[in-house]
Design a protein around this nucleic acid. Structure first.
Lengths: 260, 260
DNA sequence: GCGGGCATGTTGTCTGACAATTGACGCTCC
DNA sequence: GGAGCGTCAATTGTCAGACAACATGCCCGC
């Protein structure tokens, strides 16, 4: 067995994850609507047990990448274009733009340090009055401003010095490069807004012009908020989309606390 | 075995799915950060094998609902508020509003039948010139218009007669009630737009006012487009959000492949 | 008192088997 | 000759049990 090259088998990352990656390549190498090898064959080929393969397979089915039909086989789904470049994966504007082949530059940047308000302190899990760092900057593509971003995070997490030295336009990328604290998920709220005067000035547009607005909380693995970000995009430059699955009625639900 | 009540075991839906639902209840009934029962215990309790349970568990982990630590246990993740009411689940405005306790009414409705253009024919997988149904309506909450929706779908899928009889404001809900064709995912593109004159009139707002705009393709399980919808929302009424997970490092350039 | 080995419980992975479902082939009967 | 039906092989769905890897706390020896 063990047909996977050693650098893949001996890696210290969980086998399931590596299997999922290998499976991703297999899926990518199969035409849309095409039939995948059978599970026993694939498991043999990847050097893992069928159970492990099936866990990865299940995740792929969950994401809508493959369709399984008992007694028939597993097929690569005819996929909506750009399936995995949607909002479900958190990445910086810079990373997104680079993937799309659109070069972007960071424009005017300002950094402010100020004590936190009571609300903010609670949100970040720090003491009231502890310092926050507020980083705002303009992102430009082809010489034209296309986005205005404001990040707020405790100064204890990111020092001004480190910001000066390592910041290349994205707080997210900086935190990812550093690897600490470990990041979990981002909860992003989406709405539309008209440009306030200051933002209009930064983006060289008219006051009141239409903007797409993201307000996001970046959560660490321990559930604490690490970074709060506010993003304003000129509509039409970036295309944001999200895959929505049909909700099984019995799913959502009572999390005990009936808030809102 | 078979501790699950019969109505759950004998159901014709796949066991894995029912297990996932049962697991959802267990997770919902566990405090945040709490420890779940061990996998063997849970499997016994749900009347399924550990392998099946693990597939469901894996899906939950994938969605960020639980955290598993080898040698320790599985914990319910401290979740960002409102975790599963985000955009990742496709539901109609009516369903969403009902869940939030906000009563909505359907306002002016128009239905048009017209032949498809070449582009549309390709999109829906029908012959050019085949009829399409175009349903537009206003959604109002507390007497005030808050959304304007336009659905377009082949007349072969939904007849004018059925539309007249069963339509209660949502094409999605209608298709779900009917159960045919089986629905897969929806790919929704998100942007901001200023209100065109006609839409402004429908929503009783000024021309040029800011709107949140969703353009969605509803895909059947076979990958074909079933319905195309365009939605305009007044910002601030509905709160849309999405959970974004950190992208797996599999994509960026591998830096130190020398050893390890 | 203190440190290290060890017992115990958990998740991670593997193996092999059988059940359920599907599609195709061949056979029978008309 | 053709239509209908049973059989069979291939595939996914599910199961049971085992062992490995790992984390934690207890207990024993020092």
């Amino acid at each position: 067995m063990a047909k996977l090259p050693p650098e893949r088998r001996d890696n210290r990352r969980p086998l399931y994850q590596r299997t999922a990656e290998a499976l991703a390549e297999v899926v990518a190498g199969t035409p849309e609507g095409g039939l995948l090898p059978s599970e026993p064959a694939l498991a043999r080929c990847l050097g893992v047990s069928r159970a492990t393969l099936r866990e990865a397979m299940r995740a792929f089915e969950e994401r809508g990448l493959v369709v399984r039909r008992q007694g028939v086989g597993t097929f690569v789904r005819r996929r909506p274009p750009l399936i995995e470049s949607g909002l479900e994966v958190l990445e910086s504007i810079e990373t997104l733009a680079a993937r799309k082949g659109l070069p972007v530059q960071m424009g005017a940047r300002t950094v402010a340090r100020r004590p936190s308000t009571s609300d903010e302190a609670q949100q970040f899990g720090i003491a009231e009055g502890d310092d926050l760092l507020e980083v705002s900057r303009v992102i430009a593509a082809e010489g034209r401003p296309v986005a205005f971003l404001i990040d707020t995070l405790p100064a204890a997490i990111l020092s001004e010095r480190e910001l000066r030295e390592s910041f290349r336009g994205s707080v997210l990328d900086l935190l990812l490069r550093r690897g600490d604290p470990p990041l979990g998920v981002s909860r992003t709220e989406i709405t539309a807004a008209s440009a306030a005067p200051e933002i209009a000035r930064h983006l060289s547009i008219q006051r009141g012009d239409v903007l797409l607005r993201f307000e996001a909380g970046l959560y660490g693995r321990d559930g604490r908020v690490i970074d709060h970000s506010l993003s304003y995009f000129l509509p039409g430059i970036f295309r944001f989309h999200v895959l929505r699955r049909i909700g099984h009625p019995a799913q959502a639900g009572r999390s005990g606390t009936a808030e809102e």
